[in-house]
C-alpha cells in the first residue's frame, strides 16, 4: 500500500493528463477494492446487474412490452451501446444519457411511467445495459449536433464554483494523483458507471457523483436530470474516449 501511494505521488501532476497518461479511477484504488470489482462474485454491484436482467425481460406498461420484446437478447443488442452515450435524442433535441434513454423508451414504447432518478429500478436496468459493454472502448458519437452541448460541458468543467471556488479541472487536471484528505484525487474519467461506492453502500449514477463533488466544494448542486449534468457527462465521456468501460465498477 505504502509503495503504491508513493508511486502515485511521484508522478508528474501538472495539467490535463495526456492521452497515454489517462488512468481510470480504479488504478488509484487499494488492491482490496480492485479485487472486489474484478471478481463478479465479490462485486456487490452485480446484485443490481442481476436485478436489471430480470427487469429487461419483464413486460410493462399499457402495451405489455418488455425491453426484450423489441431489443431481444441484450448481450448482443446492447453490446457497445453504453460506450456511445450520451447520444443525441431526436425527441428532445438534446443529448440524453443512458438512464434518460431508458426512461424515454419506457414512456414512448411500453408505455409506462418513467423510473424515478436514482431509483433502484433505473440504476439496475442502466447497470445491466452498460455491463454489456464492459471491456469495450468508450466511443463518443461524432454527431455534430452534440458539439455545442459538449462545449458547454467543457465550460462547466473549467468554471470555478462554490465557496471553495474550485473547478473540476482545478483538482482533476491540475492535482490528480495528490491527496485530498485520505483520498487520492483521480482524473475524473467516468469509466465505470453506474458503480458501487463503498461510501454509498449502494450503486449510484455519475450524476450522483457529480452532485457529491459540487456539495464538496460548497456549491449548489444541479438537480438530478438537469441538462448541465448531461452536458458534463458528454464532455467527460469525450475526454475518456478510447478508455475501457468497467461497468459495474467499485470505488471507495
Amino acid at each position: 500500500m505504502a509503495f503504491v501511494l508513493a508511486l502515485v505521488l511521484a508522478l508528474p501532476c501538472a495539467g490535463e493528463a495526456a492521452a497515454a497518461d489517462r488512468r481510470s479511477g480504479s488504478d488509484f484504488m487499494a488492491p482490496e477494492t480492485r479485487a472486489m470489482q474484478a471478481d463478479d462474485m465479490s462485486n456487490p454491484a452485480m446484485l443490481w446487474v442481476a436485478d436489471g436482467e430480470q427487469s429487461w425481460h419483464r413486460p410493462e406498461g399499457a402495451a405489455g412490452r418488455a425491453c426484450a420484446t423489441c431489443h431481444g437478447d441484450a448481450t448482443r443488442s446492447m453490446r457497445g451501446v453504453a460506450a456511445r452515450y450520451p447520444a443525441f435524442a431526436e425527441a428532445t433535441g438534446r443529448p440524453v444519457d443512458l438512464s434518460g434513454r431508458i426512461n424515454l423508451c419506457r414512456r414512448t414504447h411500453q408505455p409506462a411511467p418513467p423510473f424515478a432518478s436514482e431509483s433502484r429500478e433505473l440504476l439496475a436496468l442502466t447497470a445491466y445495459v452498460a455491463y454489456q459493454s464492459r471491456g469495450m472502448p468508450i466511443a463518443p458519437p461524432q454527431d455534430p449536433r452534440l458539439d455545442p452541448f459538449r462545449a458547454n460541458g467543457g465550460a462547466l468543467y473549467e468554471r470555478r464554483i462554490g465557496q471553495l471556488d474550485l473547478s473540476c479541472a482545478a483538482c482533476h487536471d491540475a492535482r490528480w494523483g495528490q491527496q485530498l484528505g485520505g483520498s487520492v484525487i483521480p482524473q475524473a474519467h467516468p469509466t465505470a458507471y453506474p458503480l458501487y461506492r463503498l461510501e454509498w453502500q449502494s450503486v449510484g449514477s455519475l450524476q450522483r457523483r457529480l452532485r457529491n463533488c459540487m456539495v464538496g466544494v460548497r456549491a449548489e448542486p444541479y438537480a438530478f436530470g438537469a441538462p448541465e449534468l448531461v452536458d458534463l457527462e458528454l464532455f467527460l465521456m469525450g475526454r475518456a474516449g478510447g478508455m475501457a468501460l468497467e461497468t459495474p465498477g467499485v470505488r471507495p
Partner: peptide, 9 residues
C-alpha cells in the same frame, strides 16, 4: 480508517 474527502451530505 481514512475518510473520503468529499462525502455526501
Amino acid at each position: 480508517v481514512t475518510l473520503a474527502a468529499c462525502i455526501e451530505d
